[in-house]
């Protein structure tokens, strides 16, 4: 199944995909008699506006955007929960809203804020229900369960209920639940929300190995930029329903380099006594082609007693990009 999809080109194709919402202006305005019988003013919000993109199989794409940028809407369009206003999105060649059941059979979804597991019964029981929902046959299920248990290190956790698990263990349980039916597309919406740094690192490593070992395609929406940096090769930046940037993380990082600079603490003698020194800070941009020359220059001035790199993190450049786009 997975081999098939990799042979047939992109797994997701969006053509002029557009999704509008009609929302009510001032929802609490209730009219003269409080019954709101007067006509309510409606407003059209372009949640997704004319998107064109493709996603190749067995890759990871990060979805970045501010709140309300349209990330959730896009994920709902891909899973067929919502119907496009115009344009289309094809998942494995099918329109999700028309062929919802066929399409979602090959999709696994993890919502970081919500759980698909039964809170107070053993994980294994939840998995069994999901097996029946997705009509996975007994033999495949056993095999799948074994390999996922090993991969996600769930060994002794299966007999426990989610409420007895740590958040990190629970997220692994959620991922396991969403992969049980062998989907070739995994959608992760804020999977690391609330996790500590160790648990985050573990989840990231596991997702990476899923892509490499299982050939799963991953779409990851996260406000945690480092999630995307570490998991995804490509990224789509959404802003007010439109694509602000689409491409590799590397290219984005290269852009980030423009901003990066090295700050050096240089100790210089004042010339009045051997112990008498002042510490001076020198900033050298890292993007220029004369970096080496300037470094040599600084070294000749005195002893470099400290160094640090400032600015230019992916987070900083993203903030700047979004800021520019808004204004």
């Amino acid at each position: 199944m997975r081999e098939d999809s990799s042979a047939t080109g992109p797994i997701i194709v969006a053509n002029q995909l557009t999704r509008h919402y009609k929302v009510q202006k001032n929802a609490l305005k209730t009219g003269r008699f409080g019954l709101g019988l007067v006509r309510r003013e409606m407003e059209i919000v372009k949640a997704i506006d004319d998107l064109n993109f493709t996603i190749e199989p067995a890759t990871a794409v990060g979805l970045i955007g501010l709140n309300g940028a349209g990330k959730s809407t896009l994920l709902k369009l891909i899973t067929g929960v919502l119907v496009p206003t115009s344009g289309e999105v094809l998942v494995g060649g099918l329109q999700p809203s028309e062929h919802r059941k066929e399409v979602v059979r090959n999709i696994g979804v993890v919502f970081g804020h919500r759980s698909q597991l039964w809170w107070d019964v053993p994980l294994i029981d939840s998995l069994n229900v999901l097996r029946l929902i997705y009509s996975v046959d007994e033999k495949d299920y056993k095999q799948r369960l074994q390999s996922l248990t090993d991969l996600l290190e769930m060994g002794d956790l299966l007999p426990r209920a989610p409420r007895q698990l740590s958040l990190g263990q629970r997220v692994r349980g959620e991922i396991m639940a969403s992969l049980l039916h062998g989907p070739n597309l995994l959608i992760l919406d804020e999977p690391t929300v609330g996790l500590d740094i160790i648990a985050k690192a573990k989840i990231r490593r596991l997702i990476r190995s899923l892509i490499e070992e299982e050939g799963v395609t991953v779409i990851l929406a996260s406000h945690e930029v480092s999630d995307i940096e570490e998991i995804c090769e490509r990224t789509i930046l959404l802003h007010e329903g439109r694509i602000l940037y689409e491409g590799t993380i590397e290219a984005l990082k290269a852009q980030a380099n423009v901003e990066r600079s090295l700050v050096l603490d240089v100790e210089r003698g004042t010339g009045q006594g051997s112990d008498d020194v002042v510490v001076e800070q020198v900033t050298i941009p890292l993007s220029g082609n004369d970096t080496a020359r300037r470094l040599a220059e600084v070294a000749s001035l005195g002893t470099v007693s400290g160094a640090q790199v400032t600015g230019g993190s992916l987070e900083v450049i993203l903030a700047r990009l979004f800021d520019e786009a808004t204004n």
Partner: peptide, 12 residues
């Protein structure tokens, strides 16, 4: 709470 109740027109 009175307003909250009144806004629910279908309920009313």
């Amino acid at each position: 709470h009175a307003r909250r109740t009144l806004v629910a027109r279908v309920d009313i």
